[in-house]
Amino acid sequence: LTDEELVTMSVRELNQHLRGLSKEEIIQLKQRRRTLKNRGY
């Protein structure tokens, strides 16, 4: 997933992508998404 996709994707879509990932990967992705959102994309 690109940063842009992460930010513009709805939470529902995101959760579908996260299905099948490990807990660590999910946590990393969610942190990255929060960081991007805070940057004001």
Score class of each variant (00 low, 15 high):
residue 36 L to S: 02
residue 34 R to W: 10
residue 23 K to A: 09
residue 8 T to F: 08
residue 40 G to N: 08
residue 30 K to S: 04
residue 41 Y to I: 10
residue 33 R to S: 03
residue 1 L to H: 02
residue 12 R to W: 12
residue 6 L to K: 00
residue 7 V to R: 08
residue 23 K to P: 09
residue 16 Q to C: 13
residue 33 R to T: 03
residue 40 G to Q: 14
residue 25 E to Q: 12
residue 30 K to C: 12
residue 37 K to I: 15
residue 40 G to P: 08
residue 23 K to I: 11
residue 11 V to A: 10
residue 17 H to D: 00
residue 24 E to A: 13
residue 31 Q to G: 06
residue 8 T to N: 14
residue 25 E to Y: 06
residue 27 I to K: 13
residue 11 V to S: 09
residue 16 Q to M: 13
residue 16 Q to E: 13
residue 24 E to R: 11
residue 40 G to T: 07
residue 10 S to G: 06
residue 29 L to D: 01
residue 31 Q to I: 12
residue 13 E to N: 04
residue 23 K to E: 08
residue 19 R to I: 12
residue 14 L to D: 01
residue 35 T to G: 07
residue 33 R to E: 03
residue 21 L to C: 04
residue 8 T to R: 15
residue 5 E to Y: 05
residue 5 E to P: 00
residue 14 L to E: 00
residue 7 V to D: 03
residue 30 K to R: 12
residue 24 E to I: 11
residue 32 R to E: 01
residue 38 N to K: 14
residue 27 I to H: 12
residue 27 I to A: 13
residue 7 V to S: 07
residue 18 L to E: 01
residue 33 R to H: 14
residue 7 V to I: 12
residue 37 K to Y: 05
residue 2 T to D: 03
residue 3 D to V: 02
residue 19 R to K: 14
residue 27 I to Q: 13
residue 1 L to W: 06
residue 41 Y to K: 10
residue 9 M to R: 01
residue 27 I to T: 11
residue 38 N to A: 10
residue 2 T to W: 02
residue 37 K to M: 14
residue 29 L to F: 04
residue 12 R to T: 10
residue 16 Q to V: 10
residue 1 L to Q: 01
residue 32 R to F: 01
residue 2 T to R: 04
residue 20 G to C: 07
residue 36 L to H: 03
residue 20 G to P: 03
residue 14 L to H: 00
residue 17 H to P: 01
residue 36 L to W: 00
residue 26 I to V: 11
residue 29 L to E: 02
residue 38 N to G: 09
residue 31 Q to K: 11
residue 6 L to Q: 00
residue 14 L to F: 15
residue 31 Q to L: 11
residue 26 I to R: 15
residue 10 S to D: 05
residue 23 K to G: 06
residue 29 L to V: 14
residue 18 L to C: 08
residue 3 D to H: 02
residue 22 S to F: 02
residue 15 N to F: 12
residue 22 S to H: 05
residue 11 V to K: 15
residue 5 E to L: 08
residue 40 G to E: 13
residue 4 E to M: 13
residue 27 I to G: 07
residue 36 L to T: 02
residue 40 G to K: 09
residue 40 G to C: 15
residue 28 Q to N: 10
residue 9 M to P: 01
residue 24 E to L: 10
residue 12 R to V: 09
residue 2 T to L: 04
residue 26 I to H: 04
residue 29 L to M: 07
residue 14 L to R: 00
residue 1 L to M: 06
residue 33 R to N: 02
residue 29 L to N: 01
residue 13 E to G: 03
residue 31 Q to A: 13
residue 19 R to G: 06
residue 19 R to S: 08
residue 20 G to E: 05
residue 16 Q to N: 12
residue 13 E to W: 03
residue 21 L to W: 06
residue 35 T to E: 15
residue 13 E to L: 06
residue 21 L to Y: 07
residue 11 V to I: 14
residue 15 N to L: 15
residue 25 E to M: 11
residue 36 L to P: 01
residue 13 E to Q: 10
residue 34 R to C: 06
residue 12 R to S: 10
residue 38 N to M: 09
residue 11 V to Q: 10
residue 13 E to K: 07
residue 37 K to T: 06
residue 1 L to V: 06
residue 30 K to Y: 14
residue 25 E to K: 08
residue 19 R to L: 10
residue 39 R to V: 12
residue 6 L to M: 02
residue 5 E to A: 09
residue 7 V to T: 06
residue 34 R to I: 08
residue 37 K to Q: 11
residue 41 Y to G: 11
residue 21 L to G: 01
residue 10 S to I: 02
residue 12 R to P: 07
residue 1 L to E: 00
residue 21 L to P: 00
residue 8 T to G: 11
residue 8 T to M: 09
residue 12 R to L: 09
residue 32 R to T: 01
residue 4 E to D: 09
residue 28 Q to H: 12
residue 37 K to W: 05
residue 6 L to R: 00
residue 7 V to F: 08
residue 28 Q to F: 13
residue 22 S to P: 10
residue 13 E to H: 05
residue 29 L to R: 01
residue 1 L to T: 02
residue 35 T to W: 15
residue 8 T to Y: 07
residue 24 E to T: 10
residue 23 K to N: 07
residue 22 S to M: 05
residue 7 V to G: 05
residue 12 R to C: 15
residue 12 R to M: 10
residue 4 E to N: 08
residue 28 Q to M: 13
residue 40 G to W: 13
residue 3 D to A: 02
residue 20 G to M: 06
residue 36 L to F: 01
residue 36 L to G: 02
residue 5 E to R: 08
residue 21 L to M: 10
residue 30 K to N: 05
residue 40 G to V: 11
residue 25 E to V: 11
residue 3 D to P: 02
residue 17 H to Y: 15
residue 30 K to Q: 08
residue 25 E to T: 09
residue 10 S to M: 02
residue 24 E to D: 11
residue 15 N to I: 14
residue 25 E to I: 10
residue 16 Q to T: 09
residue 23 K to Y: 09
residue 32 R to L: 04
residue 26 I to D: 01
residue 13 E to P: 00
residue 6 L to V: 03
residue 22 S to Y: 02
residue 29 L to G: 00
residue 32 R to V: 02
residue 13 E to R: 06
residue 24 E to G: 11
residue 35 T to V: 14
residue 41 Y to Q: 14
residue 30 K to H: 09
residue 31 Q to P: 00
residue 22 S to K: 08
residue 11 V to N: 11
residue 32 R to H: 04
residue 28 Q to C: 12
residue 38 N to E: 14
residue 10 S to R: 03
residue 41 Y to L: 13
residue 9 M to D: 01
residue 24 E to K: 12
residue 35 T to R: 11
residue 4 E to V: 09
residue 34 R to P: 01
residue 35 T to F: 15
residue 7 V to K: 07
residue 8 T to E: 08
residue 9 M to I: 05
residue 24 E to H: 11
residue 18 L to M: 13
residue 41 Y to A: 12
residue 10 S to A: 04
residue 3 D to Y: 02
residue 36 L to Y: 02
residue 3 D to W: 04
residue 18 L to I: 10
residue 16 Q to K: 14
residue 22 S to R: 07
residue 16 Q to G: 06
residue 14 L to P: 00
residue 5 E to K: 07
residue 34 R to Q: 12
residue 9 M to G: 01
residue 37 K to L: 15
residue 14 L to Y: 05
residue 27 I to V: 11
residue 28 Q to L: 13
residue 12 R to F: 11
residue 32 R to A: 02
residue 17 H to F: 15
residue 22 S to C: 05
residue 34 R to F: 05
residue 21 L to E: 01
residue 28 Q to D: 09
residue 1 L to P: 05
residue 36 L to R: 01
residue 19 R to D: 07
residue 36 L to K: 02
